[in-house]
Amino acid sequence: MTTASPQVVLSVAERVPTTRRYLMCEPRHFTVEYVINPWMDPSKPVDTDLAIAQWTALKSVYESLGHTVETIEPVPGLPDMVFSANSGTVIDGRVLGARFRAAQRSAEADHYRRWFLEAGYRDVTMPSRINEAEGDFAWTGSLLLAGTGYRTDPAAHAEAQEVLGVPVVSLQLVDPRYYHLDVALVVLSEATATRPAHIAYYPEAFSAGTQRVLARLFPDAIRATEADAACLGLNAVSDGRNVVIAQESTHLITELQANGYTVLPVDISELRKSGGGPKCCTMELRG
Rank of each mutant, 00 (worst) to 15 (best):
E26K: 15
I91K: 05
Y261P: 09
V9N: 06
Y150F: 15
V124C: 06
G275M: 08
V90N: 07
L188E: 09
A156L: 05
A98F: 05
Y178I: 12
G120C: 10
A191F: 01
I199T: 04
E108K: 03
V95F: 12
L117T: 08
N235Y: 10
D92Y: 08
A246V: 11
N86Y: 07
R113G: 00
A236I: 03
T225K: 09
E73V: 09
V169D: 10
P176D: 15
E73D: 13
V32E: 02
L185P: 05
L252Y: 00
A85V: 04
R20M: 10
E226L: 13
T192V: 11
T152D: 13
V69C: 10
W115N: 13
P265T: 10
I36A: 10
P219Y: 02
C231P: 10
V12L: 13
L65P: 04
A146G: 06
V213R: 13
E270Q: 15
I52Y: 05
Q172Y: 00
P196N: 14
G149D: 14
S43L: 05
S60Q: 15
A133R: 05
G165R: 04
N259F: 01
R94E: 01
S5T: 11
D92Q: 12
L252E: 03
H198K: 13
A155D: 04
A246L: 01
A197W: 13
E226I: 09
P6K: 11
A103M: 11
T282H: 08
S207V: 04
D175S: 15
T18L: 13
M24I: 04
E63Y: 01
P176Q: 15
A191Q: 14
T254Y: 00
W39D: 14
S64R: 14
S60H: 06
T250P: 01
